[in-house]
Design a protein around this nucleic acid. Sequence first.
DNA 1: CAAAACGATGTAACCGCTTGCACAGTGGGT
DNA 2: ACCCACTGTGCAAGCGGTTACATCGTTTTG
Lengths: 331, 331
Amino acid sequence: MATLREVAARAGVSTATVSRVFSRPEAVSPDTRAKVFTAAEALSFTPNPTARSLALGRTHNLGFLVPDIRNPVFGPAVETAQDRARERGYSLFVAAGEGRSADELDLVRAIARQVDGLVLIAPRMSDTDLEDLARVTPVVLVNHTCGELPAVLLTSDDGMSQAVDHLADAGHTAVTYLGGPDYWLAQRRRLTAFTTACAARGITGTVLGPLEPDFVVAGRNAADELVRTGTTAVVAYNDQAAVGLMQGFAEHGLRAGRDYSVVGFDDSWLCEMTSPPLTTVHLAFDDAGVTAIDLLCDVLDGKTAPDAGPVELATHLVVRSSTVTADLPVG
Amino acid sequence: MATLREVAARAGVSTATVSRVFSRPEAVSPDTRAKVFTAAEALSFTPNPTARSLALGRTHNLGFLVPDIRNPVFGPAVETAQDRARERGYSLFVAAGEGRSADELDLVRAIARQVDGLVLIAPRMSDTDLEDLARVTPVVLVNHTCGELPAVLLTSDDGMSQAVDHLADAGHTAVTYLGGPDYWLAQRRRLTAFTTACAARGITGTVLGPLEPDFVVAGRNAADELVRTGTTAVVAYNDQAAVGLMQGFAEHGLRAGRDYSVVGFDDSWLCEMTSPPLTTVHLAFDDAGVTAIDLLCDVLDGKTAPDAGPVELATHLVVRSSTVTADLPVG
DNA sequence: CAAAACGATGTAACCGCTTGCACAGTGGGT
DNA sequence: ACCCACTGTGCAAGCGGTTACATCGTTTTG
């Protein structure tokens, strides 16, 4: 791989000039520029990004941690984040957590100093670790908060209250919430949103959980219990749990949208794949991806304070066919 | 962030010594080592990876390109690859292609010089581009070949012939293959495997496709055609297409495993989520992930030639319930 | 006991690029 | 004619590490 010096030698100019041609071309006269370009061409020279990073003190890379690469909700976030990062002149390095919280910290530390900033989706590390990290490199959180670190939150309240209302409208007087692991902010928020929504609507809200993180099997397992207690309306922590639930109910010959109602959370592409298609609360993870990147880039550009606090993104119910309709009241 | 020099000053040694403490600790006497460590501790010093990369000429990072982050098959590959990379002392940077082949090259070029090697899953770029890339940095391919570049291939033959046999055993005398996009090696291989398997078994094989890359809707759309022509046995390019197909058939009141048979490809977690659960050909993408990393690391360690050619990983049929059984013969 | 070998440390060049500063040449303004 | 921008370029000192080589005590060995 050719270096700046070789190009400089071949073009008969100094290394400074070559450097300028590649970083501020307008600062160099058109004919030297041309000379340099042909020399660079001939040697197929490309500036070494590592050297540039060292000299500049910035890498033009961004890190993006997703807690579980298998979870379909994160796909859209990664995609949009990557696009936006490119638009703003950065490359995105995604790292995949795998549920194990211990590894997560190692993973992130390994990349923290090689990027100009980090987006962490629902990290499970401790606040202390997070603060330490934020001292090393700018951090933007998604669906998690820590002090006044900038964050993007997918509000659960509006979606949850719509879900509960929807179920109540259909004639359900009792609803069960099947909760996820407590270490997730989303879970904690959904839980309180659920109880307040039920209270507001004047229906009985029962809570089950927390589910283990393999949501499908957890949902399937929970089904027996729910069938036994005669539950007919469920809001599940996420779509996967809802799908598991539907499978479990199916084993008892019960079909969602006919014999009982179930609402998921996330609106992953799973929802259109089930039968019946799953009513769910839409989470705009695609927006969350670009918003997080924008926030991060703004911090890097000094446009935003690195402790700007959270931005909230609305959620809303998407009605499909896993919930009974009002004219088909159930017990 | 503290630097080597500051640590050296505080510990009263030279920078060389500090450097050695962090790269070859055994080369320095225990008491100086201790002095350096306490100084480093006090300043919370960590070697700057960028500087180290520049000096060393290696980054200890690996790049991993997945063509479509939303496709559930790639999750396991990413996970296992990441684990293995860490085991072998590398960090893995994942880049997500998004179907658009043009972006793919940009994406990869942006990271190519920041990593010691690249794993590319089913890249869509031209052979020329690929060769150029391989000249810049070691490359390992997955489900793609290009000259003698090292590659990991998930063989389609065995799985496909098992699938065809399974359908024939169930009494089907005609089978349709619903193919994916031709630019994928897997598609081309599955297609030939299909025709030879049908020939070998003496049943009629029809081919449909190629499907557009949104497989679910493509599958759904294909269903009408298939129903009209009275097709009762289908092998789909992948699980997503199979799911779409099942949805399309369902609209005609037809149920897989009872009225007709369908076999998917990939064995993604989708298969256990459908009703009925999908019979499919298992692709060991988890193995492919670690194998690719191993291959790449071996090349980097000089243990393998950078043009070692492909390694094949076997596939096999996983029978679930979307195929009719032998004692329930269909028309 | 001198020579050789060795282990621990320091010196300084280097990895490839950026950039503040100095310098020369140009063209106006007075 | 002179001074002063102003533009285009080069010099050289970094960025934060690594490492070949030199140095210097301390054994070991014939």
